[in-house]
Write a protein that binds this DNA or RNA. Structure first.
Lengths: 120, 120
DNA sequence: AAAAACAATAGACCATGGTCCATGGTTTGG
DNA sequence: CCAAACCATGGACCATGGTCTATTGTTTTT
């Protein structure tokens, strides 16, 4: 498919898709084919892009994502690839813990406000 | 305490602290006192700053944080304050779910790599 | 074949969140 | 008293991640 359809289906702008491609997060295939130099994407790229989108939403940087995608797709060394991904999972779990921490803080604050409401 | 000590104790740079103060995340107290115009902070600000630091780490924007801090400290309307905080907690829970989603994705990828390793 | 829709590229532009720097005033310790 | 250490301010600067624009080329559609 061409970038327009991919954009449509992934929910990412054409510009963003091109940016991601330029940064090595995805790859277009047969653009070199012939007449035009339009990017051509397979269905698989849509999946990749959905992952990338969620990951970006969650704050994973483009640089990290490049590393991850590269690990998964281009890595000659699978054990190295695994290492990268496992590390990222660990990082994300830490992040969840941090968020839970912030939530506790807020819950406490909410409790305080509520008791203030009830109390006086 | 003065900004240097607060910086020391909070782990945030002086510049960052000034930035946060300028953006209404914290407030310095008695600077208006007399001779100098040095910022003066109470112990409470250290706590606030620790919260702000964690929240920033977790990706909460300065703008959102201003709203939260304002809700908690300056709000005339406690029920409104509560609303803001509850909303943020909900948002954070969504974020956790998103991260868990990304983790699942990565776990699957790791599984794939591993089976590739084992299989061949 | 001509208009409308789509694509490419490069570069400008923007917001966010910090850091760094220059200048100048204040404190503090020796 | 005087140097070192600290503080203030404003503006420059930086990275990241995206969007927008202009220009030009390719398809499609009628």
């Amino acid at each position: 498919m061409k970038i327009g359809e991919l954009s449509e289906r992934s929910g990412l702008s054409r510009d963003t898709i091109r940016l991601y491609e330029k940064n090595g997060l995805i790859a277009s295939s047969a653009s070199k084919s012939a007449t035009n130099n339009y990017r051509e994407y397979g269905e698989d790229v849509l999946l990749q892009l959905q992952f990338v989108g969620s990951a970006r939403d969650v704050g994973i940087s483009i640089a990290d994502l490049r590393e991850l995608m590269k690990a998964f797709f281009d890595s000659g060394d699978p054990s190295e690839a695994e290492k990268v991904m496992v590390a990222k999972v660990a990082e994300l779990k830490v992040r969840i813990a941090q968020i839970e921490n912030v939530i506790s803080f807020l819950d406490a604050a909410i409790g305080k406000v509520r008791s203030g409401l009830d109390g006086l």
